[in-house]
């Protein structure tokens, strides 16, 4: 037989006077927290340690007197009566969009407000793909992994490999993670970027010096930082998508020096357009210049 209901960890945290087996808790097929915890004791304990279990916050499941469990998992009477696991919401066994709609009932502000129609929504990613309410491992965000990078790289292998290249942002060093730039819940920006309305606005949130606009702008950079840089990492200096001078020569093939073959002979001769920082040995203001004579980004 079923164990006798005990005073649950969740209901202990509820406001004084709450009755897990109150009539309201029993209405509509609800059985109350104590009934749930009689079998699912560990889930009850873990819930209490999380923000979901803080009854003082009126927005949490725990604030629903006696219905902390069932506010997410749905009425449990049929499940209790039959023992049938299909008679209760088990999020890992639900279709992603069904599972997500439960979470979005409460998580409707901030970036969550942009979940619907976002890239993860479109690909049937579930909240519980990344998060765990009862057995989270991360310091923040109740992720299933210790670090956010580990969660993201489960699917984004290519980006994870790029982070390990010689030119990279301080992700490996723990100074940034994927969520420094991206918001996985959705955004009004492209590529689920967290800040601004374009890639450039995201980049400029840390690299504001390059934001401009300048008296003389570099058109390619004005449109898209990623025309020249790979923010996930590359084997080139400054995370460029190609090595200089080849990168610049993809757009500048004009007469004189941009059209020169910078081959082994030029390297042996230590041409100041080939060695070191190559083109930006002279065109150092390549992101834009505020100098009246800065049209060629030399001043």
């Amino acid at each position: 037989g079923r164990p006798a209901p005990a005073q649950s960890a969740v209901s202990q945290g509820a406001s004084a006077g709450s009755a897990a087996s109150s009539p309201s808790a029993q209405a509509g097929g609800f059985v109350g927290d104590d009934t749930c915890i009689a079998c699912h004791e560990s889930e009850g304990k873990t819930l209490r340690g999380t923000l979901h279990g803080k009854a003082q916050n009126a927005r949490t499941p725990a604030a629903k007197t006696g219905q902390a469990c069932e506010s997410c998992h749905g009425p449990g009477q049929a499940h209790v009566d039959t023992g049938d696991k299909t008679k209760i919401k088990v999020f890992t066994a639900m279709s992603p969009k069904d599972a997500n709609s439960t979470c979005l009932t409460c998580h409707s502000k901030g970036s969550h407000a942009q979940w619907n129609g976002g890239m993860h929504d479109a690909r049937n990613v579930a909240c519980v793909t990344c998060h765990s309410v009862h057995s989270a491992k991360s310091e923040r965000g109740q992720l299933k992994t210790v670090m956010a990078v580990e969660t993201c790289q489960a699917c984004h292998k290519q980006e994870a490999m790029k982070v390990k290249k010689s030119g990279h942002m301080p992700v490996r060093e723990g100074k940034m993670d994927c969520t420094s730039c991206h918001t996985p819940h959705g955004s009004t920006n492209v590529r689920m970027l967290k800040v601004g309305n374009t890639l450039n606005e995201t980049c400029a949130s840390c690299h504001a010096e390059k934001r401009g606009p300048f008296l003389h702008d570099h058109a390619a950079g004005r449109e898209n930082c990623a025309s020249c840089h790979d923010p996930h990492g590359s084997n080139n200096d400054r995370m460029l998508i190609a090595k200089e001078p080849m990168l610049c020569q993809r757009c500048h093939v004009s007469s004189r020096h941009p059209a020169t073959i910078y081959d082994g002979t030029q390297i042996a001769a230590a041409s100041n357009r080939a060695v070191g920082r190559s083109c930006v040995n002279c065109h150092s203001q390549i992101h834009g210049s505020n100098h009246p004579a800065g049209g060629m980004f030399l001043r």
Binding site: S132, S135, K137, K144, T145, V146, M147, V149, E150, Q153, A154, A160, R172, E173, G174
Partner: peptide, 14 residues
């Protein structure tokens, strides 16, 4: 699965 994922955890440089 979660434990398996943890095994492949990204190593921080520090």
């Amino acid at each position: 699965q979660e434990e398996a994922g943890k095994a492949a955890a990204t190593q921080r440089d520090v």
